[in-house]
Nucleic acid binder design. Structure first.
Lengths: 214, 214
DNA sequence: GTCTATAGGACGATAGAC
DNA sequence: GTCTATCGTCCTATAGAC
């Protein structure tokens, strides 16, 4: 017995997934709606029934990514632990998300610095604003945690607004070199995330004393 | 008295500059040759006289970027200093290059994971191979320096091949957030580069002892 | 809701004037 | 060498059948 309340969002979700895969492969401008339809296993009629335009589709994929990110970030931020624990947890979560949802992650990376100056309707600009707000909210949370960590003497004094850039950049850059392999498991992904996060927190210069590095 | 040996390469150089600016703004697929011509202040006839296709033009911009990178990297690598000095010097040089040649840097970032599976001639594939070789050469130099640093006890034990990814990723990510400002000077850029490189080398976690962080 | 067919426009690349 | 004009192709988006 199919329930109709799910039918609409399911149709959209499948299209978003297919679009993410296609956009990941060829980029926004390089992907045609026909290519998305081919990934989806249908024709573009279906896509244009659910989405107003290619730009809207791309923006919705991007927003979906950012929403998932912010939810994960806020969950860790609200949880227990020191600022250092939270910082570590957030970075690990994000690294894992990138690996597990690579197509969506790649769309977010391309969307970040896409100037949609041309061909943006007021409605699309509203979605773009939403996306930017989600990103700013996430960055603000990180900045706040770093500030707390510095205050508590857990982190080096630094300019948190500047430091989050390379931190998040290093994670986003995973979309460039990380490729899922058949032998990948949640554990192996976790190990990779831990390695990266450990580097991002502790750097690479050897400590002068015997402080543990892990 | 104009010398003819320069005339050909000068025409190409101007076109490469204009193309880099246009590609930075709209990406490869989103940029038309007419747009490049407009930045150049001419018509596309001039471009097609010097370059066989849009793809060739993009690849030549990308190669130009990678050539500049590798030259800078090799100069520092061959110079004096400890592995830590060299690592620091290379990262600082790259960060500076990104800021000073932002359009070229952005093309390199887009080009890294562009699959030109379609519409690549054998000649273009040769250029692509050249570009990839330049990148691999640069990464190999960094890996070797990190290995030396670990051996000498200057750097933490780690997997160098894995660590160079976030390191270079953080620098490449500058193309996303860094925007040149009128008040920027070589000194202010150097300061920004130093801040980033210091973070990439030392991380952000406070040392347990009184070791200096700068 | 999803399909086919097509209008309408943009772009890569070339031909030929100058 | 650079420009103008244009051909052919591909793509977004819509109209209308089912």
């Amino acid at each position: 017995m199919k329930v109709s309340v799910r039918s609409k969002s399911d149709g959209r979700k499948e299209i978003l997934d297919a679009a993410a895969v296609a956009f990941m492969e060829y980029g926004f401008a390089g992907t045609s709606i026909d290519m998305v339809a081919e990934v989806l296993g249908s024709t573009k009629g279906k896509i244009y029934y659910h989405f107003k335009s290619k730009t809207s589709l791309f923006l919705d994929v991007h927003r979906e990514t950012m929403t998932t990110y912010i939810e994960a970030v806020e969950e860790v931020a609200k949880g227990p632990g020191t600022p250092l624990d939270k910082l570590s947890g957030i970075l690990t979560t994000l690294a894992t998300q990138v690996m597990e949802r690579l197509p969506y992650a790649k769309v977010a990376v391309e969307g970040v610095d896409m100037h949609m100056s041309r061909s943006t309707t007021p409605e699309q600009r509203a979605v773009l604003r939403e996306i930017i707000d989600l990103r700013d909210r996430g960055e603000a949370i990180l900045v706040r945690i770093i500030e707390d960590g510095i205050e508590q003497g857990l982190l080096r004094p630094c300019n948190p607004r500047l430091i989050v850039k390379p931190m998040l950049g290093a994670l986003n850059w995973m979309t460039v070199w990380y490729r899922p392999r058949p032998q990948d498991t949640p554990e192996s992904r976790k190990a990779l995330a831990d390695t990266l996060v450990n580097y991002l927190l502790n750097g690479i210069v050897a400590p002068a004393d015997g402080r543990a590095s892990a």
